[in-house]
Design a binder for these strands. Structure first.
Length: 318
RNA sequence: GGACGGGUGGGUGAGUGGCUAAAACCAGCAGACUGUAAAUCUGCCGCUCCUUGCGGGCUACGUAGGUUCGAAUCCUACCCCGUCCA
C-alpha cells in the first residue's frame, strides 16, 4: 500500500526554459531541483553553463551542481550513483524531485539504467591508445571486429571514443560488448517517472540561443573565463571543452576577435540544441509542450498536467 | 589611362579540354549514440522526373559570343574586384 513517489523529469534543448519551468513546478508542488547536466557539475563554470543563479538556488534547493573541480572527471555512471543518493534523500523528506534534463545520456543512465557493464578503466584505455598509435587509426575498429563483429558494424571506424568503450567493456567483462549490453538494464526503482518535454519551434529557439549568448557575455562570461584561467586551470581541463569556454580563453590569449567568437558560440549552441532534440524526440512517454518553459500559459498547462498525473498515480498506486 | 593577378555551388577554396553537378573544409538538414555526451560519429546537401538506378532530363563555374565531337577549363570582347605603374 505504499504510494510510489513521483519523479518529474523536464527534458528539452538548451535555452528552452527547463529551469524556469522546473522552478515553478518545484515551488508549487513542494519540490527540489535535481539538475541533470554534465556541465553544471563543475564549480566555477557558471555563466556559460547556465547554472541556476544564487537567487534561484536560494528560492528552491538545487542538487547535483558544483560537485567537481575542473580537473576531475565525471561519467554518466557516477551521475547515476549521485542522483540515486539525492533521490533517496528527497523521498525521505517527502519532497518532489524535479529533474531538469539537458544531458540525455545522464537521464537514461539514471532512469533506464545500464546493463551491468564494467566501469571505465584508465589502464585499459592507455593501453588501447598506445596500440592505436602503433598500429594506425583503424586499429580499434579492426580489434572490435575480431571481438564482436555486430558491435563493429554499429560503430563507425572513426568513432574512437565509442570503439574504445566497446573494447574496454569486452576486455574487462571477458565477453563481447553486444552480449554484455543485451543483458537487462538496471532501471531506477521506487519512483514513478513523469516526463514532460519542451519543444519550442526551431527558429524561435535559435533566436533565443542567440540572445542568451549575448546576455551571458553581458553578465561577465569573459571575466569568468579570465578568472578561471588565472587560477591556473589548464586549457586541457574538461570544462574548457564546453561550448564557449575554450573559444573565450583563446580570445583572451589574443587568438580570435570577440564578435567572431560570439558568433561561433551561438552556432555551436544551435548545433548542440539540435543534437538534444534528436536525442529527446524519440524518448518514450514524454508529454510534449511546444513552447518555452518560462511562458506563463505553457507552465499553467504543464502544471495542470502534472498535478493530474501525480494525483492519478498516487491514487492508483495506493 | 597602362601592367599584372583574380571572378567557381550558402561561405572558404581545389580544379586548366572528356573520368566534373564540379575535390576538400565550413555552414545547413536529418540521424545514431548503454560510463569524458556542451563529447563523438553517420548520411544528405543545384533543380526535377520516374520503373529509385553506380537511372533520365534540365540548369550551373562574372556576362556575351566563338573554337571543338566535347569547355569551369582554350580564344575574343565586355563588366566587376585586388595589387602595382602613370
Amino acid at each position: 500500500m505504499t504510494r510510489a513517489p513521483v519523479l518529474v523529469a523536464i527534458v528539452g534543448p538548451t535555452a528552452s526554459g527547463k529551469s524556469a519551468l522546473g522552478m515553478r513546478v518545484a515551488r508549487e508542488l513542494g519540490g527540489e531541483i535535481v539538475v541533470c547536466d554534465s556541465t553544471q557539475v563543475y564549480r566555477g563554470f557558471d555563466i556559460g553553463t547556465s547554472k541556476p543563479s544564487a537567487a534561484e538556488q536560494k528560492t528552491v534547493r538545487h542538487h547535483l551542481i558544483d560537485l567537481l573541480e575542473p580537473d576531475e572527471l565525471f561519467t554518466a555512471g557516477v551521475y547515476r550513483e549521485r542522483a540515486i543518493e539525492v533521490l533517496a534523500d528527497l523521498r525521505e523528506r517527502g519532497r518532489l524531485p524535479v529533474m531538469t534534463v539537458g544531458t540525455g545520456l545522464y537521464m537514461r543512465a539514471l532512469i533506464d539504467g545500464f546493463s551491468e557493464t564494467p566501469v571505465r578503466s584508465e589502464e585499459v584505455r592507455t593501453r588501447l591508445r598506445t596500440s592505436m598509435a602503433r598500429h594506425g587509426a583503424d586499429y580499434l575498429h579492426r580489434a572490435l571486429r575480431r571481438i564482436d563483429s555486430s558491435a563493429a558494424k554499429r560503430i563507425g571506424p572513426r568513432d574512437t571514443p565509442k570503439l574504445m568503450r566497446a573494447i574496454e567493456i569486452s576486455m574487462l567483462a571477458g565477453k563481447p560488448v553486444s552480449e554484455v549490453q543485451s543483458a537487462r538494464r538496471q532501471k531506477l526503482e521506487g519512483f514513478r517517472v513523469i516526463k514532460i518535454g519542451l519543444m519550442p519551434p526551431r527558429t524561435a529557439l535559435y533566436e533565443r540561443i542567440e540572445r542568451r549568448t549575448i546576455e551571458m557575455m553581458d553578465r561577465g562570461w569573459l571575466a569568468e573565463v579570465r578568472a578561471l584561467t588565472e587560477k591556473g586551470i589548464p586549457a586541457t581541463a574538461k570544462p574548457f571543452s564546453f561550448i564557449g569556454y575554450g573559444d573565450l580563453r583563446a580570445h583572451l590569449e589574443g587568438k580570435n576577435k570577440l564578435p567572431a567568437v560570439v558568433a561561433a558560440i551561438q552556432q555551436a549552441t544551435r548545433r548542440y540544441a539540435k543534437r538534444q532534440v534528436t536525442w529527446f524526440r524519440p524518448e518514450k512517454d514524454v508529454k510534449w509542450f511546444e513552447g518555452f518553459g518560462d511562458d506563463a500559459k505553457l507552465s499553467d498547462e504543464a502544471l495542470k498536467y502534472l498535478s493530474g498525473e501525480i494525483e492519478h498515480k498516487e491514487i492508483s498506486a495506493s
